[in-house]
Amino acid sequence: MKRYLITEDGTVIVGSGYGSPVTGYGELVFTTSMTGYLESLTDPSYVGQMLVFASPTISNYELHKGVMESQRVKVSGVITRDAHMELPAGSLGGDFDRFLRDEGIPAIDGVDTRFIVRKIRQGGVLRAYITDNPEAVKDFPDPMNEDLVTKALDSTGIRNIKGNGEERILFIDLGSKKTLRDMMLNHFSLTVASPDSDLDSIDHYDAIFVSNGPGDPQHPSLKPVVEFIRKNLGRKPVFGICFGLQIIALAYGSKTYKMKFGHRGSNHAVSDGRRVFITTHNHGYAVDPDTIGDFHVTERDVNDGTVEMIEDDMMMAVQYHPEASPGPHDTRWFFSEMRRRTDAAKR
């Protein structure tokens, strides 16, 4: 069935529709990861965005529920070149088309995805619709103005989870990935709290961790979280990844900015000047290097110099995703390093 991808600059791309017939809207972004399509689709950091897969071959291996990074598909639309529909269902009980339909997510296939990737690279991220009804498309509001974090969360409130460590981490959940929590639980026990909870009321924890999440870190809804971190700087060890790094930097008084088209993929090299790590990225915002606060930038992106790791005596955060999923595991040392620093701070 014919379906349309319509971008804010007026480009209309025709493809064949699959998944849900509903109209999808969001910021158009691309990932260059060649594996882990289901992990990407269910990554809460993509809330408010429609995902273009640069890799043409999607749904090329079975869907397995176990690799979902949250309970639902979190992108608002899927754009593919060659999604495969005929594979056995895997553990999800349905093929890819059926899966997306059940999830209520529209998708469009047979698209010259490289053209869209290049378009985004040249002009920056674009807002776009996926629709069966091109006449209905009118305005293109900025999804980043919304409170995306709330939308990203599968559950809210405060809950304790016992892990493989005695140390307890206050895990501020801004839309965290399941693998991230699993990795944390290998080393710690967690008190997972959504940003709307009364963070000050929580006690008995050894360190604070700020998770990944969607949207703009300077969004007003996140002010209380930034404030909470600011209060705790120097008092408890503070850690974070991705969106979490940006929140922490804001707490130090740094600024963040929206990147032209962000980093999304599994092949980004970061370096401390000597060692190189291949890391997974998924961010559209970054810390403004001209506003570095009272901390050190210890790693940067090899290609464009983006701030990738910041450190202080009691703070450590990375812009990339050490939990990967999808992507390489080169930086999983980050979790044991957090453990080491938490131990050291306790002593």
Partner: peptide, 25 residues
């Protein structure tokens, strides 16, 4: 040389320290 010091000769504006991503087969 280290991988992060070698320029990727095909893009000429990135470094050899990365893993290629393919959008074809």
């Amino acid at each position: 040389y280290g991988l992060h010091e070698i320029v990727n000769p095909i893009t000429k504006n990135t470094y050899a320290a990365f893993e290629p991503s393919l959008d074809y087969v």
